[in-house]
Amino acid sequence: MSEPKAYPSLEENPVRDFSLPTPTDLTLARGGLRMLFAVLGVMFALFAVAYSMRMHMGDWQVLVDPWQLWLNTAMLIAGSVAMEIARQSWRRGRTQWVGPALLIGGGFAVVFLAGQLWVWSMLTSEGYLVNGNPATSFFYLITGLHGLHIVVGLGFWAYGTGKVLRGAESAQRAGVSIELCSSYWHFLLVVWLGLFALLANT
């Protein structure tokens, strides 16, 4: 049976059957998460575009970023590393490491959030208010939105970590949570690095 070239043959199209009701297949979840990253990526990119367009409107005053942001960035990196350790440990079957690494990864995210709030309160007390210069407005808007994504991530993290700590019966499900959480942590780290580069001293 000769198939014309333009169409992939049967063999190239693997069979996908999955059982209802809940898909546990990691590839599916990962495919969905990648799409989500694309969506969120576009969103943050558009904020960046709006930022750089607004920057040229004449009344822009550079906001000198507090040094604490560097510290917070370090926290976020540490969180990502911890999550990666959790993921690798899980994949290699070193289950005793998974719980602690997850906790540390989440902990760093919480510390990052606290650090961001610290920056906010400092800026506010110095008189940089959200309705002040647009550079400041954008700072609050963008960091706030990024923080909100971390908060949502922490929700899923708590759910997954809870399962691991309780010694989940469904090992595969915990695995999905760990995989997804660590990818999400990396994603938000990358987004943050981009935003930080944009916000830093402009």
């Binding site: 169409y7 992939p8 049967l10 199209n13 069979v15 996908r16 599916l28 495919g31 799409m35 989500l36």
Partner: peptide
Amino acid sequence: GGLNYVTTVLQARCRGMTLMR
């Protein structure tokens, strides 16, 4: 909804359902 539709099209097609079919 959109994440669902896209992932379903990309990953949950039955045997023989190539994109061009």
